[in-house]
Computed example of a mutant assay.
Amino acid sequence: MITVLHNNSFCNLTELLILDISNNHISTVHKAAFAGLNQLSVLNLSYNMITQLDSDVFTSLKSLTVLNLQNNLLKSFHIKSPFKLIEIGLAGNPWNCSSDLLDLQIWLKDPSVTMANEDNATCTFPKIMEKLSIKTAVIQPDDCKIEKASLENTVTSTSAIKVKSSALLTTQMPNNITENNRTRADLPPLGKSWTFLAGVLGFVLSTTLLIFTAIKCPTWYHYLISYSHRRLEENDSEMFEEEFSADMSSSPTVSGTDNEEPIVILEKIHAFVPGEDGFIEDKYIDSYVTEES
């Protein structure tokens, strides 16, 4: 009932020659599981449930000549380092004859390597190569590029589908969200939100600057508050009447040589005005004095 081969599981068996752990439930083999088996020549791992295995696991087995991996769940087996064997058993596994199996196939064609039960070591995938021997099946290096390209296309299409799904979910979101029997209006678009925010920020900064200036520089503020505009009154006509009345009361009387009534000569004396002679010509008085004369 062994399921996992941990690192250094057999490190004390330095003189062991044959190790048979077939017919268990081994699914995982750690990289240093066989460390210390310096004299091991035969290793039997058949009839287990191993799904992935690399040649690095067996690098510490310097004396290994026979390896039995039959009837497991292996789809590929990578040869990463020098791997010296005389016999290997690979039958009964669901091999995938693609680029992942190319290095194994090249190694199997080495004349010094013998594959036990070769007729049953056949491809399971792809379907066009089913039942073909993994040693003779035609695997082209170009298949690797094709598979990688198809894998990339699959990943790209999957990403595109996810993006489209996200966009579809975004467009299908309701315009209004009802919470606690209340409907909230739609949020403004991102661009309008930034414009609105910039306007509010500018208004707040301007108001703050004005308040700060009013506090620090009150002179102009008081000047604006105390300033009041008043239209000047035009009282020239009233002043003229008052002056004229005063002149009438103080003007001298003149007696003629005849027995006629005295003639009153009115003169208007004005205060000195720069640029004038100090007199105002009155045509009515001149005509009256002439007729009496």
Rank of each mutant, 00 (worst) to 15 (best):
D103G: 05
S165E: 13
L19E: 05
L45R: 00
S112V: 10
E233R: 12
F77L: 03
D103T: 04
M115H: 06
I134N: 02
T171S: 10
V57E: 00
I139D: 03
L67K: 03
K109C: 07
P111C: 08
L201C: 15
P252D: 05
L132K: 14
F58Q: 00
D247R: 03
P262A: 10
T14L: 07
L101V: 02
I177M: 07
L205W: 05
T178V: 14
S166K: 13
G199P: 00
D282N: 14
K135R: 10
A121E: 04
H30A: 05
L108Q: 01
S150D: 09
Q140E: 12
L19Y: 03
T51H: 08
V200F: 05
M1T: 11
D142N: 08
M248R: 03
G36M: 01
R230H: 08
V42S: 04
S251N: 05
Q105M: 00
L74G: 00
P252E: 02
S293M: 13
I139M: 03
H78A: 07
I161A: 15
G278S: 08
E15D: 04
Q172H: 13
Y223N: 11
E179R: 14
K127G: 03
I2M: 15
Q39W: 01
L61R: 01
H30S: 08
Y221T: 08
M115T: 08
P126R: 02
V264W: 07
G278V: 03
P189S: 13
I79R: 03
Y221M: 08
P218I: 02
A33V: 06
V204W: 06
I134F: 05
G191H: 09
N38T: 14
S228L: 08
H25P: 00
S228D: 13
A160Q: 13
I18A: 04
E241Y: 15
E243G: 01
E261L: 06
T195N: 09
T156D: 08
H78P: 03
T219P: 02
E238Y: 15
Q39C: 06
S76N: 07
E147V: 05
K145E: 10
M1S: 11
Y223I: 06
V155I: 14
L53D: 04
Y221N: 12
E261P: 05
S245W: 09
S251K: 00
A214T: 07
R182H: 14
Q52L: 10
T158H: 06
P111R: 11
V254S: 11
S226G: 12
E292V: 15
H25E: 08
V42H: 01
S60G: 04
M1A: 11
H270E: 11
V273F: 05
Q70A: 13
N38H: 15
F58E: 00
P141I: 05
H229P: 10
T136R: 06
H222V: 13
T136L: 08
S287D: 12
N117A: 09
F212R: 13
D186P: 14
R231N: 12
S293C: 09
N181V: 10
D100A: 11
K80L: 10
L232S: 15
E233A: 10
E260R: 07
